[in-house]
Design a protein around this nucleic acid. Structure first.
Lengths: 200, 200
DNA sequence: TTCAAAACATGACACTTGTCACCTGCAAGT
DNA sequence: ACTTGCAGGTGACAAGTGTCATGTTTTGAA
């Protein structure tokens, strides 16, 4: 019997998947969470074989959890189930050595089989990702990301400078550099593009 | 037997709900669509008792379809199933006299019963909406929305002015007005907030 | 009819943004 | 030892942005 927990903040999908997976003879849903912290707690308490997680959840993202489990050398296998085929997310998931990365755009019929494959030691990656994976990787450095993140929250150059203890000229240089790399003309476009690609 | 069709562009959710509903003795899923035009075609061809639709779908939104069915005085009952509790969407759905407006954040267990209630002539509205419906309505006028939309795409004041045949001073006045109404200090924050609330 | 709101406009002012050229210091690689 | 690249910096300039006061015109509701 494969014991799994589900972490997904959209109740309708979580409930539906939970019911469906429970119908399988060899799969048992032993816990469900609608946020990251709850999910992590359940994993520690219940020691499931597999956890099926969304990425964007309240409190803690699925990727955060995957990284923590990797560091703790947990035996719980991780399958990410998300809407987003963002290269940034996928890259991070691969680094965290997740056992599966599936898209919500995929078929629900294949889900149970994917879980079985993962239990058998295979890795299940949505085909869309393997091909398009590193075609577009994040051209921004750590620092540049940090600055763009702050800009995206609506901060002005001066405020960004203050919170990073930089001069405002430096901040503007970074933003200029970022816009150059992203081939856009304003910080607003840069923010849109970076958020879109999941680089933020 | 209640004959229904499902229209939802996220395959995983549509598949899962389809399988679940088909397990009910008195419900039969006779068609599924992943875009609005396909859904409308199916409704005309198969004459289902109920159609369960998302709002944001390719080609045609669920609200567009609901309005068309209302005009055509179709006997097919419409249930909207969406992520968004946006007052704007809900208002439009009510005007289109939909029979149900449920949230993807609701329980999947209640779905079948909601469908039965709708067939029995009741209306099923997510409680979150009835109460919070008009608490926070869009403070921006049509024109202001239009300008903020253009700003959100990264256009400068001058570019917005050009595309609307206004002077750039007028555009800046609007943006200033918008930021005042939204109580923020920059257009970036205004964009974030408006997108967040679904006013865009 | 009258009044208020929305839409549109101008000009002026201070500040922010984006660009550029040019500078230092430091930590890899080769 | 030397180059390269990242991080950080300066100063100057043009353009864009946000604010204000002050108008006109149109339009819909009381």
């Amino acid at each position: 019997m494969i014991r799994i927990i589900l972490a997904e903040d959209q109740r309708m999908l979580r409930g539906a998947l939970g019911s469906l997976l429970d119908l399988e003879d060899d799969i048992e849903v032993i816990g469900q969470a609608d946020n990251g912290e709850e999910a992590l707690k359940l994993i520690h308490e219940l020691k499931p074989d597999v956890c099926l997680m969304d990425i964007e959840m309240p409190l803690l993202t699925g990727l955060d959890i995957a990284e923590q489990l990797q560091m703790a050398k947990s035996s719980c296998k991780v399958i990410i189930l998300t809407t987003f085929a963002r290269p940034g997310y996928f890259e991070r998931a691969v680094k965290a050595e997740v056992h599966g990365y599936l898209l919500k755009d995929g078929s629900s019929d294949d889900l149970a089989q994917s879980i079985r494959n993962v239990m058998a030691g295979k890795r299940e990656m949505a085909p869309e990702l393997i091909f398009g994976a590193f075609k577009e990787k994040n051209p921004l450095s750590e620092r540049e990301c940090e600055i763009l993140r702050l800009a995206s929250s609506g901060k002005t150059s001066n405020e960004i400078a203050a919170s990073l203890f930089l001069s405002h000229g430096t901040v503007r240089n970074y933003l200029s550099e970022i816009m150059g790399k992203l081939e856009v003309k304003s910080r607003i476009e840069a923010i849109k593009l970076a958020e879109d690609k999941g680089w933020l």
